[in-house]
Nucleic acid binder design. Structure first.
Lengths: 138, 138
DNA sequence: CAGGATCCCGGAGGATACTG
DNA sequence: CAGTATCCTCCGGGATCCTG
């Protein structure tokens, strides 16, 4: 505090690394979803649990998480194909903080709503402002 | 668990909203940085505390956070200009979960390292693999 | 020093079609 | 059903220059 300049949060600091893991793509949501499904579930189920995620993004996210060692992929040699993803011990490590964060969100849903509302307000305002020329009119 | 199909985490569920706030741009890091600086600090200090962030991104993030009501902007009418950003009560609400998350990261630094290592490994492997034709050779 | 305005590029990620 | 391969668009965000 005496020397603000000595406080540096560089690329390798813990906070940034944590964010790189929790905030990349759908990682957190996928972990959460698998957890809610009892620690193991199929691709299709995941996709329906996370409406809005595209097949491509889901596959990509799952691949990366597998590589990271957070989930395990098990293929059953049946037809039609069946693939199950489950949390590894490493993956389970992340459940606690994630659930903590979401629990905090539940408790403070009012604060979250407030922010959402402000964002929407400023978004619609932006439409009334200067955009009535280039794009909107088309 | 009986009916996996009934488990849906749509756009408005708490987890997604939480992530939208914590994982957008540099928001979390800025909150963290201001907090470490005692709840209030100047633009330049922030930029030096967060090496790698561009002026543009910093300003943009600060604007959005101000709009969200998480931080307050105070301009001192001096020359050269001096601007201070401080946490609002709403902003302080976020400090607790953020610090919690980062504290968890400190405790599990080994797990984070493991993941980082795997990512680097697969990244360098990707360079040896199929990329020796189109881009690499140039 | 704080921060607006411009230009511009790379790549994230959706849509679609195909395979086993 | 699970996954790959292509194509194509859009915008996030850096670099640069300019203001008060």
């Amino acid at each position: 505090m005496k020397d603000p300049e000595s406080l540096v949060l560089d690329e390798n600091c813990i906070p940034r690394r944590v964010l790189e893991i929790f905030c990349v793509k759908w990682t957190s949501m996928v972990l959460h979803a698998i957890h809610l499904h009892g620690g193991c579930c199929r691709t299709g189920v995941l996709q329906r649990t996370l409406p809005g995620i595209s097949k491509k993004m889901l596959t990509q996210t799952l691949r990366e998480m597998e590589r990271d060692g957070m989930i395990a992929r098990k293929v059953y040699p049946v037809v039609p194909p069946m693939v199950e993803y489950s949390l590894t011990p490493l993956g389970q490590l992340f459940i606690e903080p994630i659930e903590m964060l979401y629990a905090w969100g539940e408790e403070h849903a009012d604060a979250l709503k407030k922010i959402t509302r402000r964002r929407k307000a400023s978004a619609s305002k932006r439409n009334l402002d200067g955009k009535a020329d280039a794009k909107t009119q088309k």
